[in-house]
Design a binder for these strands. Structure first.
Lengths: 196, 196
DNA sequence: CGCCAGGTTGAAGCGCTTCAACGTCTGTGG
DNA sequence: CCACAGACGTTGAAGCGCTTCAACCTGGCG
């Protein structure tokens, strides 16, 4: 049932079987259909969600336009972590890109677990550090690289995104228009061809 | 001696006086002169640093150019947190903008303290969450706003930066050239004047 | 089959950069 | 005390990177 989650969790902080059983007891299982929302702007993220099946994208509505900020696949967490941590209304939308199954941990239960078990507190610290590092890298992409370089880096580091996600969302994620992404791809294709 | 640090720390997780004394025992005090480096690219950040006096900027050398990524003032931490967490070589430079005094906590001591005292483990989690939230907000600035909007937001949220830091660094921090920042400021001045 | 969302292509335009010249302030040595 | 250097900021003109808008193409799905 919880193999993927257990594998993920134990790779960060191993628990005893009893501790694991205690943590698992608080899980709520939910299923979403394609295009359903895990959270919408204005709602507070009261649980943290592990994606067991399917995939999600997060986006913000800015001046009437959707700006896609991330993609989550099975085997990772998908939440508005800021809304979850601050327990304030979210600024983002999290939408299922296909039919999904998720495991949710309510905020209050997590706080209790942090206090009652130092290993889980440590897990919380390491997860926060991990997502901080991810965000740091994504920020560096924007600060240091051109759109073309960002595209190539994405291709290299998260090929699954390029393969599975509609180009319109990828372009937004890269901070460019779909038209310009199309031109970049075309250009790369030409230079690749000329190498043959 | 450690009033600022204590205030900062206790606002996140209060400790008993004995616990505080234990933590303080590991502090190393350092002084830096203007333009000295707290860390350079290639070095590993083996301590986390609290700024007691002075201020710093962080920058990366990208394609031969300095890209300023942050400013730290007294009363906050100044480190390459990613290098510190991963214990891998840093990609950034941290430079003193004036004469500074810092308190350093070595990585190994911090790890020991995390394990020996759950309150300090919790402190570590909350700090990681806090800097994650800061980075999230900075990222949103870049993804959602124009240079002019970013400048106005900076003016509103961190006026100290606008007041104390040379424009050449501010421009870099905002992701634009100094020339363009100058034009933005000029434009804002004009529209402000027209309101009088 | 026909529709429409997703992707491509072209032309025009804007936002920001680049480069060069000039202005201004501060500190420093003659 | 002034001359001068050098760093920081401003201004103008030209250019490039990316967007915008519109037309067209293609494949999947009702």
């Amino acid at each position: 049932m919880y193999e993927k989650l257990k594998k993920y969790h134990f790779s960060i902080v191993p628990l005893t079987e009893e501790e694991w059983a205690m943590k698992v007891r608080h899980i709520q299982i939910k299923k979403l259909r394609k295009n359903d929302f895990l959270i919408k702007e204005g709602q507070t993220c009261t649980s943290v969600h592990f994606v067991n099946k399917g995939s999600f994208r997060t986006y913000n509505l800015i001046k009437g336009k959707e700006v896609t900020t991330n993609f989550f696949f099975d085997g990772s967490y998908a939440s508005d972590y800021v809304s979850y941590l601050t327990q304030k209304p979210s600024l983002e939308y999290i939408q299922a890109l296909e039919d999904c199954e998720i495991f949710s941990f309510p905020y209050d239960r997590m706080q209790e677990m942090y206090e009652s078990n130092p290993k889980i507190q440590k897990f919380g610290r390491l997860i926060a550090e991990k997502i901080f590092i991810n965000m740091y890298r994504r920020q560096q992409e924007f600060l240091f690289f051109t759109p073309k370089e960002r595209y190539l880096n994405l291709l290299k580091r998260r090929p699954k995104v390029i393969q599975q996600i509609p180009q319109i969302y990828i372009a937004s994620y890269l901070g460019i228009t779909p038209e310009y992404l199309s031109r970049i791809r075309n250009e790369l294709k030409s230079t690749a061809d000329s190498l043959l």
